[in-house]
């Protein structure tokens, strides 16, 4: 029953949402809207579960005297508790501590963290981006054309470069991506059908019922 009940629920709701698309009757639309409403609430709880797991993980480390990373887990917990107090008790709008921390602590650090990648990309360009075979040559040439064609200096070198980049993006690259999209669509449709029909059950924590 532990496995069957979720499977039945999955079938019931999945089949309903699918059929409703083709038969948008007044009653079915009302049920459809209610389900959409409910799922937003249920999903929000799943996010909270994720947060709870993270808190649990760091609480264990922070309270273990022998743990090497104890102070760092303390910082994580301090950050969570601080933001929680600011956001819940002192508001989130203009001139609030919550928005201040978001703007001057969280946002700059996160953006900087990602900008580190520019340095690693440069390093990888030197060490790893080698034309070892024909496929790599295709990749390399496409990358060079786009890199030059999408910045003003490319246009200064030759008017042909931006045009080549445009063509590349609008024809072969676009078509290849379209092939991937069609593949993804076919895969998603078949997997969704398998999930609704109870053939695909890995989300229950195993493949066999």
């Amino acid at each position: 029953m532990h496995r069957k009940l979720p499977m039945y629920i999955c079938f019931l709701f999945g089949a309903f949402m699918l059929v409703q698309f083709f038969i948008p009757h007044r009653t079915s639309t009302a049920i459809y809207e209610t389900i959409l409403d409910w799922v937003q609430i249920i999903y929000a709880f799943s996010l909270l579960v994720g947060v709870a797991l993270l808190i649990k993980h760091h609480a264990i480390i922070a309270t273990r005297p022998s743990a090497k990373d104890r102070p760092y887990s303390g910082i994580v917990l301090g950050g969570i508790i601080g933001m929680f107090i600011f956001g819940i008790f002192f508001g989130r709008g203009e001139d609030t501590a919550f928005l201040w921390v978001f703007k001057y602590v969280q946002a700059p650090m996160q953006a900087t963290m990602f900008s580190l990648l520019s340095f690693f990309v440069a390093s990888a360009a030197f060490r790893g981006f080698r034309a070892r075979n024909t496929q790599a040559v295709f990749l390399l040439v496409a990358a060079l054309i786009v890199m030059l064609g999408r910045v003003p200096v490319g246009d200064m070198i030759s008017g042909f470069i931006p045009k080549a980049a445009d063509w590349l993006l609008n024809v072969p690259s676009m078509a290849a991506r379209r092939g991937i999209y069609i593949g993804i669509a076919l895969g998603t449709i078949s997997t969704s059908l398998r999930v609704i029909l109870g053939i695909e059950r890995t989300y229950l924590g195993g493949s066999r019922g």
Binding site: V76, G79, M83, F84
Partner: peptide, 14 residues
């Protein structure tokens, strides 16, 4: 770690 903490705190509140 500060980034992780405040990000999760922000997410929780939001």
């Amino acid at each position: 770690h500060l980034l992780l903490g405040v990000s999760v705190g922000y997410f929780l509140v939001t």
